[in-house]
Amino acid sequence: MHTPSTTTSPESGRQLLLHHFDDLEQQHLSSNLGMWFFLVSEVMFFSGLIAAYTVYRAWSPEAFHLASRHMDKWLGFFNTWVLLTSSLTMALAVRCSQVGDRRGIVRNLFLTLVFGTAFLGVKATEYRTEINHNLFPGKHFIVPGSPEDPHAHAAEGSHEGGEGHEGAAAHASDYERLREASTVDGKLDEEKFSRNKGHFQLMFVLYFFMTGVHAFHMIAGLALVALFIVLTQIKWFSGYGQTQIEVLGLYWHFVDVVWVFLYPLLYLIE
């Protein structure tokens, strides 16, 4: 409950007009367009990575397929769901700023914060599993089933004693299947084999880099969302921060769009 005033104080629900703009409309469009220009540069940044991915996947499809099987597609599904939901709450926060519902802004931004954090939490557990399986690219990377894989023999033993209903091919290790994919007319093509092993690891380079850069964008977004909750709470913005919150929303939705492409590209290769 407050008394409306005719000044441009935050309480009045009106935005301040900066002197170099003609009107609020122009001011709003300028901020909006500025964010869009930044997002276009971000699109180009991520497309470079996707282009690299496309070239190497086309070169060694089997290696990418095998590497992709190490990603848990249902965890990815859950994370996509969480992220899309956070986009909905962000869109609702923007709507609340447009209709002047300050408590609604705070509530929806808070939900966005919760969903965004949940996404990062799940991502962190995925990373941990992959790193524990020696799938982080670099010195400690091991192609599962290769001679230097300490688990290879134990895995073989369990396979022999297992159900075995899907035939030997289903139980073959990545190493064996890469070897198979590199065999031409019954003869192993050494060059192709080492390329396939390399591209198997390269898929993990791309996976960690793309999801890592995406996660970095999420962290930046979450920090901004948390900041905006405080700023909305203390009525720091003129009006209801409709321009600022919409611009933040644009960024958040962009990060969501990136994930919408990353999910099928990294998790769902058949």
Partner: peptide
């Protein structure tokens, strides 16, 4: 997401050009 969550459907022509342009550049690349 772009049309509705990001409001491009209701936005100024210049925003349209920018959004469509980014898809176009990715396509070219």
């Amino acid at each position: 997401i772009v049309l509705f969550f990001m409001h491009v459907y209701y936005s100024a022509p210049l925003t349209w050009v920018t959004a469509v342009g980014s898809f176009l550049w990715v396509g070219l690349l």
